[in-house]
Simulated assay, not measured.
Amino acid sequence: MKNVGEAPEAPARAPQEELATGERSTRNRVVRSILDHGPSTVTDLAGRLGLTQAAVRRHLDALVADDVVAPREQRVYGARTRGRPAKAFALTDCGRDAFDQSYDTLAADALRWIAQREGGEEAVIAFARARIAEQAG
């Protein structure tokens, strides 16, 4: 039973309707943008995708409901401005699994290959140290 004054629920869209209206492809663009750029605010996503903030919020609401993305409080450095703090939306494990992410497997295979053919564990350690020094510089 609804409370008086509550907004009516939007009817669930059929998958065919989502495809016909482009909803699914736009949601995929939102998710891909978060995957490529990391946790993002509504403003960030709207700017990158050329959408209105209202459209981005609508897609994010659906993605949160599907457990593809999750909101988190964005850290504020310095003086906080008025209003609610912006939320950054990040992919959930479920959302990340939807993309073919074979980078971890590739990296593990490369390290295994280095260890077996190029000097064992010492070569892997040398590689790790070189990467850390490169990123720190």
Rank of each mutant, 00 (worst) to 15 (best):
P15T: 12
R131S: 14
R29S: 13
T43D: 09
E17I: 15
I114P: 00
A46L: 02
A20I: 10
R112K: 14
D66Y: 00
E118A: 14
E122F: 11
G5E: 01
T21N: 06
E18K: 11
I114H: 01
T21K: 09
D61V: 12
R29E: 03
A136Q: 13
L111V: 08
V76W: 01
T26V: 14
D67P: 00
A79F: 07
P15I: 14
E118S: 09
Y77D: 06
K2A: 15
A65T: 13
N3Q: 03
G47H: 05
L91S: 04
D100S: 10
P39K: 07
G38Q: 02
R80P: 03
A70R: 12
V56L: 01
I125N: 10
A108D: 08
A12Y: 01
R13E: 09
G5H: 02
T52R: 12
L49V: 08
F99Q: 04
D44F: 04
E18R: 14
H59G: 03
G120T: 09
G78N: 07
E18N: 10
A10W: 03
D67T: 05
S102C: 08
G137N: 07
G137Y: 01
A10H: 04
A10G: 06
D109S: 15
T81I: 12
G47I: 00
G137C: 07
R58Q: 07
D109K: 10
E121D: 11
T105H: 07
A126L: 09
A20N: 13
R80L: 07
H37N: 10
I125M: 06
I132A: 15
P85F: 05
R32A: 06
S33E: 05
A126S: 14
A7I: 15
D109H: 08
V56C: 06
Q16M: 11
T41R: 02
T43P: 00
A128I: 08
D66F: 01
A130M: 09
L49H: 05
G78H: 06
R131D: 09
L19T: 12
L35C: 05
A86F: 01
G47N: 09
E17V: 15
A110P: 02
A54W: 03
D36Q: 08
P8H: 04
S40V: 03
D44C: 07
S33T: 14
E73I: 15
A7E: 04
Q116R: 15
C94A: 12
L91V: 01
C94N: 08
A14V: 07
G137M: 07
I114N: 02
H59V: 03
V30W: 00
V64D: 04
A65V: 13
S33C: 11
D93A: 14
R13Y: 01
E122Q: 13
K2I: 11
R32I: 05
R72L: 10
T52G: 14
E9P: 03
L35F: 01
E121C: 03
P15R: 10
Q53C: 11
G47L: 06
V124R: 00
A79T: 15
E118C: 11
W113K: 13
